[in-house]
Simulated assay, not measured.
Amino acid sequence: MSGPDSPSEPLDAAQVESMVEAALRAIAAATDSAQLKQVRAEHAADRSPLALANRQIGALAPQLRKEAGKLIGTARSRVNEALTAKAAQLAQVELDAKLQAESVDVTLPVREHPVGAVHPLTALINQMCDVFVAMGWEVAEGPELEAEWLNFDALNFTPEHPARFMSDTLFVDPPSDHKLMRTQTSPVQMRTLLSHELPVYVVSPGKVFRADEYDATHLPVFHQLEGLAVDKGITMGHLKATLDHLAVAMFGDIRTRLRPHYFPFTEPSAEIDLQCFVCHGDSVGNPERPCRTCKSEGWIEWGGCGVVNPRVLEAAGVDTEVYSGFAFGMGVDRTVMFRNNAPDLRDFVEGDVRFSRSLQGGAR
């Protein structure tokens, strides 16, 4: 629209109506959102005929501006309302078309995708922790890169103890930092004693690191679950009952025994053995029925345990005249092997999902 010839002439209503009709025709003709976007730019944007006509209102005589503003405002409203209605209509049409194109015939046969499996070690750690959580214990975790004091000194390891040698322990450079990859999860127990109020009942599962060979029965990285109870009146009897409860939860109806041993952090100390779950002791002294699992000894070593050494409690600031405790630990990898007759520890770290699937629900 070129506008009035002089400021005293009003806007041409017929010409404004012609602009509106042209816009409405273009809107009605749009068949998709892209076309409607182009129509909006041509008939409702800043350079559209109606927008240019609106700019000319300021040049009109004052007595004509009100009527002209009303005329242009009504015209632009009609166009905008038509654009909004058309946009909603096209959006619904396009959505329906998209849903139709993406529809799935659920009656067609499908190819199932293979699913993963929880690693047997993870599953067993969760089960073992559940046993203790049900008894009111807590699960505690700590760093795998550990201070030498927490891993050895606080646990009553002497400076010359063989476990400190580099042939057994993975120290981290520089040696002056006295940092190592933890050889046991016992440092978590010491951290708990240093940070928690007594009494303490915790289990600490996790990875441990040793300078071991990589073969069917040894791994340089394996898993332990250790337990610690510190309270008033704790005895060896409480330890035996706790371990019996765990053994039954893991293996069913099975017997355990405590065999005297030595550990720096417990006194007295013992190894806990499981009655062979293959021969149940029948192979002992019976050459006609040998047992490869227990080597005809009737028992299988499971882990270590004992009453917490008073020196360990004193290192954590615990009054040994009031409190006592017990501790135990066993290899989770070894427990999985016992429960599932897994012959080779290397299968645990190869990452083959078929191995994990084969052990799902494989508890004895």
Rank of each mutant, 00 (worst) to 15 (best):
D5T: 10
V312A: 10
E144T: 08
L194Q: 13
V230P: 00
V172N: 07
L145Y: 10
I27A: 02
L36I: 03
L64W: 09
R255G: 03
G361V: 04
S2K: 14
L170P: 00
V248N: 13
R40W: 01
G116I: 02
K179Q: 15
S48A: 08
P290F: 01
A249L: 10
E267S: 13
E138I: 03
K66I: 12
A229V: 01
C279W: 09
D212V: 05
V20N: 05
H218K: 02
V208Q: 06
V208W: 07
V79A: 07
M19C: 15
V93G: 03
Q275K: 13
P290D: 07
K86E: 09
R257A: 03
V353C: 09
H113G: 05
F265T: 00
V322K: 12
V332S: 07
A61D: 09
P290I: 15
A134L: 10
V20L: 06
R357T: 00
R76N: 00
H178W: 04
D352S: 11
E321R: 03
G237D: 01
D12K: 13
L52N: 04
E314K: 06
D273S: 04
C276W: 14
T158G: 11
E9M: 13
I300C: 14
R55G: 01
W299S: 01
L246S: 11
L180C: 14
A229R: 06
M128C: 04
G206P: 04
E350V: 15
A23T: 06
H43M: 08
T217H: 04
A28M: 05
N309Y: 08
A91V: 00
L274S: 06
F157L: 08
T84A: 15
T31G: 09
S103C: 02
L258T: 02
R40K: 14
Q38C: 00
I72F: 07
S356L: 05
W299H: 02
Q100D: 12
G285I: 08
L90H: 01
F338R: 02
G237L: 08
V203Q: 02
D344F: 08
R210C: 07
L108R: 14
T74N: 12
A91R: 12
R182I: 11
R76S: 14
T185S: 12
L219H: 06
M250N: 04
A241D: 03
W299G: 01
E42L: 15
D212G: 05
C276H: 09
L180D: 02
L36A: 03
L246N: 09
P4W: 15
A315T: 11
D231P: 01
V349E: 05
N309C: 07
C305S: 10
R255I: 00
A82T: 06
A327G: 11
R164N: 04
D282G: 07
